[in-house]
Design a protein around this nucleic acid. Sequence first.
DNA 1: CTGAAAGCGCTTACAG
DNA 2: CTGAAAGCGCTTACAG
Lengths: 334, 334
Amino acid sequence: MKTITMADVAKHAGVSKSTVSQFLNKRYDYMGAETKGKIEKAIEELGYSPNIVARSLKQKSTKTIGVIVANILHVFSTQVIRAIEDYCNESDFQIIVCNADDDPVKEKRYIDMLRAKQVDGIIAFPTGGNVELYKKLIDAKFPVVFMDRILKDVQIPTIMTDNVKASSLAVGQLVERGYRKIGMISPPIHTCVTPRLERMDGYKQALEKNGIPLNPNLLVSGELTELADKIHNMLTQASPPEAIVASNDRVLLEVLAYTKKHHLAIPKDIALIGIDDVSFAGIYTPSLTTIAQPAFQMGKKAAELLLSLIRDKSNEEVFGIYRFEPTLITRESC
Amino acid sequence: MKTITMADVAKHAGVSKSTVSQFLNKRYDYMGAETKGKIEKAIEELGYSPNIVARSLKQKSTKTIGVIVANILHVFSTQVIRAIEDYCNESDFQIIVCNADDDPVKEKRYIDMLRAKQVDGIIAFPTGGNVELYKKLIDAKFPVVFMDRILKDVQIPTIMTDNVKASSLAVGQLVERGYRKIGMISPPIHTCVTPRLERMDGYKQALEKNGIPLNPNLLVSGELTELADKIHNMLTQASPPEAIVASNDRVLLEVLAYTKKHHLAIPKDIALIGIDDVSFAGIYTPSLTTIAQPAFQMGKKAAELLLSLIRDKSNEEVFGIYRFEPTLITRESC
DNA sequence: CTGAAAGCGCTTACAG
DNA sequence: CTGAAAGCGCTTACAG
């Protein structure tokens, strides 16, 4: 199976390679109708399809972007990827997906690999462990957009949920329902995972705004595996919370596992609101009140920004943090 | 920012491009230690990283594969992709993800694009609408592996859940629990979506094996949007089922929405088992008995087969259908 | 042990 | 309106 190239088409059509190339790139300006016809026919007959790798080498653009997520298994990442893919597809870009697993070493390997493959840009959920590398990328005017994590002192457009708002929506809803003793459960608070931090901050601010003093005993964070114990301690203390904000979907699952195991009625024994609108929120009993992140809009925006940066690498206007509003979905759990 | 090339490294190290290339490809056989040192130093000093596009053009291998799924939002697809990515990562392959949305036109566009980009192979959840195209690919010895769908008369290795077994596991469990009037609810039955067909067949076979006559009134299939009505009709007929097999996760969600809305107790009013182990199966009340598909193993196998096909394109031994055993996870819903 | 040369399949000024 | 030529950044026989 000899692969057929532009040279073959040119010979078959009786024109030069240049002319075929012009044709393929739709530079018809001065092309004779007859020439066009001959080339079309030759392409058809030979079943020619251009080699984009060769074009990429010459044009120094691969029409491909890299997307580095922490883990494609997370629903939020999946939705973001889907939105990016849809947007890119319209512009004839492809995406290479990488799972960095929150490991800076893997992240660096992927970045190097993507650059070696000459991708035109990268959208990343940065781990926080490669600040210097990202700085080099900006120095080289390599287009990058961040998603869901803020890195200090790095001039890169960043797409974020308004996490403070998310918490404030959650606390606000609980307060409105008459709860005052409101706990929060979060994954481990590392400085690099911005949403966790911001949601915690937002929780504190919202309490204050509602005139509720912060009670450290109602605040729990820890690895998923140790959360069950910590939840138990929190709920069995002298003055337990009447309501809980679950900081994300995985925490919510832990809380639900706990309430099920201990036969706690929601919202009678403990009211509940979760950040992330999980798939089963509507069919759970009771149905779960949640805060939804606009993942699709966020993914689309990330793709938009990246492609605009790819088109104009020195467009500094795009820098900054883009906040997307979460929404409250009221159901029965609080 | 001039990008630095192999020629720059060669000049800087005082050797030829060929020698640098040998070095990069670890063909150290006859290379002097001194030469090696000079090149290493030059690469280091210049911060050189090879252009893989150029290499790909010459070597006719991009170390990239395409993965065409119906929809990355489906949990099963996500898990398969994750497994593929993990496996490819070990072999220094990258994956380009495409969503064909069960649309043959989109599927064809993606296949053409991936080939133009010179990917080394494709893993696809085929729509069934591009049989001729796939046949051409095999004729051209282009490596392809199918996932989750069987296309007749196409010589392509195909990874499948043993769907008949999945249904038989489900029906078996219900029978063991004492149910005889067992219904099944399925998405629309199109011939091209193999799992639906096979699960339906498996259901029928399992009934027969258990000496239960098939009752067409206990068999429902339809679009997700019309399922609520159809479920209603099924459950309010003269002789309704005592137990239901939900053919996949999305159907299960519909059933659950229905039972919640109509305050049906599970399993008292209606017992339930779902194919696909949904994330909330354990924390639902009652917890849900499910049949799990080994998505990760399946994804890994697909990647294995594809890479082996890429290494040896005429390896016909790999053709055939690979069946993976689903497992019963017993919980409380039946 | 290392280098000169050709070539992968395109694109792009430039000449005519 | 079309073609010859150079070049993108590598790899790979081959010669020495």
